[in-house]
Each structure stands twice: as C-alpha cells, then as structure tokens.
C-alpha cells in the first residue's frame, strides 16, 4: 500500500524550479532513500511534504488524502513527522521537555502527563539517551542532539518519518548506531523516507532509492540498480 504519493510536485523560487514535476511514492513499511547533489531539491521536497513551504502545483497524498497546502501541525497530527538538516531542538529546555511537548501535541494529542512521562523515558531508552532526562538539550553532543530530534519526532507517533541527513557530521561508530536506529524504527512499524549523503549507509539501509538532480527525478530503484545507473553515475557519483 502506498502511504505517500506525490504527483507533479513543483516549487518555484522566483523563476527557478527547486523541484520540477517530481513523481514519487513510498510504500508502507519501506525505507526509501533520497539522494542527489547539493541544491538538487531534496530538502525542498521534504519541506513541501511536511508543510514548511507551500507548493506551486501538484498533489501529495498521505494515506489517501491530499496534504499539499496543509500546515505542518495539521500534517503532524495526521501521522507524519520529520527531523531537520540543521538540528532544531528546543535548546534551553530539558531533554524530557522536548519529548513531552511532542507527546502532548503530536498525533495522539491529549495525552495524560504521567503517560507522556512514561513514553518519554521509553523513547529515550529506545534512541540510546537513557538518563539524560534533566539535561539541557543544547548541552548534548551533536550526535545525541540528532538522536533527541529523532526521539522527539517519534513522540508524535508518526506512521511516516522523514529524516533529513541524520548521519551528516557523525563519526563511523555513530553512523553505524544511527543505521541500527533507523532499522529499529522501521521494525516498530514506522515507514521511513530519508535524505542522506553518507552513501554506504544509505545503500545498506534502503529498500529503494530515489535520485534527484536540479529538482528532477533522474532515477529510482534498488540500491544495486542505482549504483549501476548510468545517469546517476555521471551526475552524482562523478564516475
């Protein structure tokens, strides 16, 4: 079943197309990677899906409903969460407050405080941040801030999670841990659509990969198909 499907998605900034006529879909339970050189329109596509920016034209169906043009909080409540390329935590709040807020306002909404607190410690343990509840968020390391952002997104109870460069800036050990985390999240039933530059990681974890270039989809397929695709090789891998 297609949980997310985009048709003819376009976004122009001035006269420039950030994404031009992109068609894509994500099946329930999949991990799909989104790759492309800088400026290919990957984050723009995420911003369109999550409602950060309004599209010029096209439709994006989430669970059979067109969400294009809805506000981020409305899209969140329908079960779609995201992280940001540059981490956007509530820096001077504590780790647990970051997550509690997402529990209170996310998809389930109206959660009781004690339930939210239980959920928060469960999530912190899940992403490997046990015991940091009272720490001020901006005092965490970058790798841990990224984990917290994932935990915060999960706290909204998403069915689809968008991860924007989760692995950027992490060392090899941390990349391995993040890969593990992504697989765990899927195992719990959340579909994942992720932008990544770390090739090895995304090739290893994705079921399917979509490649963008200058706002257009240039290729799509399994990791093996992508690595052998001529256009992708030329443009992206520079071979």
């Amino acid at each position: 079943m297609r949980i997310l499907e985009g048709k003819g998605v376009q976004k122009y900034f001035g006269g420039l197309a950030a994404t031009a006529d992109v068609d894509f879909h994500i099946n329930q339970g999949e991990i799909v990677g989104l790759i492309g050189p800088n400026g290919a329109g990957k984050t723009t596509l995420f911003n369109l899906i999550s409602g950060s920016i309004a599209p010029t034209s096209g439709t994006i169906m989430f669970k059979g409903e067109n969400i294009l043009g809805l506000k981020p909080h409305q899209i969140c409540k329908r079960g779609l969460a995201r992280t940001f390329q540059l981490v956007k935590l509530f820096g001077s709040m504590t780790v647990s407050q970051n997550i509690l807020l997402a529990c209170f306002f996310g998809k389930s909404g109206g959660v009781h405080k004690s339930d939210a607190q239980r959920e928060s410690s469960r999530l912190l343990e899940f992403v490997g941040l046990s015991g940091t509840d009272g720490v001020i968020a901006k005092e965490l390391t970058i790798a841990n801030q990224k984990r917290l952002e994932v935990a915060r997104a999960l706290a909204t109870k998403p069915e689809l999670l968008l991860l924007d460069e989760l692995m950027a800036g992490l060392n090899p050990t941390e990349v391995a841990q993040a890969t593990e985390l992504v697989l765990e999240i899927r195992k719990k039933g959340t579909t994942i659509f992720m932008i990544e530059h770390v090739m090895k990681a995304i090739m290893g974890v994705s079921d399917r990969i979509i490649a963008l270039h200058y706002g257009k989809k240039i290729s799509e397929g399994t990791p093996e198909e992508i690595t052998t695709d001529k256009t992708v090789k030329e443009i992206y891998l520079g071979i």
Partner: peptide, 18 residues
C-alpha cells in the same frame, strides 16, 4: 511549554503538532 518552544524554534514547534 509550547510557548517556550516557540521562543526556541517556531518551525520545530509547528512540526510537532502545535
């Protein structure tokens, strides 16, 4: 708590359903 979050990052606050 949500108002405090708005002071930190409006975009992130919006994206967690506020």
């Amino acid at each position: 708590l949500a108002l405090l979050a708005i002071g930190e990052s409006e975009e992130a606050t919006d994206h967690i359903g506020v």
